[in-house]
């Protein structure tokens, strides 16, 4: 096949995920359960008009837009809302592949303050894939109205990543959100998510597989997470690795030069 432009990061984003990225721009993904306000945040940040509305499933087209944060051009991607990332539906595969293989510079996990438990289920799964995550606890106004209180500082400590409370519709907390995303994406601050503790037998299995995976993937994917997928027999992921990782080659630098032409 020879070299195609497919091999460098920039072109790989363009070819596989249809994302155009500036040279030193950032790619930021919005993930979360359906109906948590992802599109509302997306619209507020990009000035675009994605369809919002109070019913799960209305965002059927993966949208992207740009916004400038502290002088840097950021590409924002509004991923489809999912309840999990275990690849049980097309939406979940799309969201998961994006997080795994497009490697956004930061991911905002939008959660619903009024039913945090269900939303944490997804947030924890995202944290297994990438540590560059800011958890946005949205719908704080609704929670307040219902008398629900969320201790976001404690939540940040529990999860090991920044947590920002917002009320996206009235644009509250969005400034804090984007500046935190910026800090994380540019590496000014680092996060350190606490791994989900699994049952003894699972942990043992992970320990056994993890080194082998690490040797193969060389840090390109979170090896603990891949180990778990192997344990549960997820073949979908293997497809993804074949599709995307093979393109990303060891000789990346040389290829990147070619692309620049």
């Amino acid at each position: 096949m020879g070299y195609s432009c497919k091999s460098c990061k920039k072109c790989m984003l363009k070819d596989n995920f249809n994302i155009t990225k500036d040279k030193d721009g950032l790619v930021i993904a919005l993930a979360g359960n359906p109906n948590t306000g992802k599109s509302t945040i997306f619209n507020a940040l990009t000035g675009l008009n994605q369809h919002t509305g109070n019913w799960p499933g209305k965002t059927v087209l993966q949208a992207q837009g740009t916004c400038i944060i502290k002088g840097k051009k950021c590409t924002l991607v509004d991923l489809p809302g999912t309840y999990s990332l275990l690849a049980n539906s097309i939406d979940e595969v799309v969201a998961r592949d994006f997080l795994c293989f497009a490697k956004p510079d930061a991911t905002i996990v939008v959660t619903d303050a009024t039913c945090l438990e269900r939303n944490l289920n997804l947030a924890l799964q995202v944290l297994e894939i990438t540590d560059k995550v800011v958890v946005c606890v949205n719908l704080m106004d609704e929670a307040e109205r219902k008398g629900i209180k969320v201790n976001t500082d404690l939540l940040a400590a529990e999860l090991g990543v920044p947590v920002i409370p917002t009320s996206a519709r009235s644009k509250q907390g969005l400034d804090e959100l984007i500046s935190m995303v910026y800090e994380l994406a540019t590496g000014n601050i680092t996060s350190n998510p606490n791994p989900i503790p699994y049952d003894q037998d699972l942990e043992e299995a992970i320990q056994e597989l993890q080194p082998q995976i690490e040797a193969l993937l060389k840090g390109r994917l979170n090896s603990r997470w891949v180990a778990l997928r192997l344990i549960e027999g997820d073949e979908e992921l293997l497809e993804g690795i074949k599709n995307y990782l093979s393109q990303e080659e060891l000789e990346e630098d040389r290829v990147e030069e070619k692309c620049a032409q």
Partner: peptide, 15 residues
């Protein structure tokens, strides 16, 4: 296990 962890965290952080 993931749900259990989510439940535990939610218990500690949400009133």
């Amino acid at each position: 296990n993931i749900y259990r962890e989510a439940e535990n965290i939610a218990k500690r952080t949400v009133v």
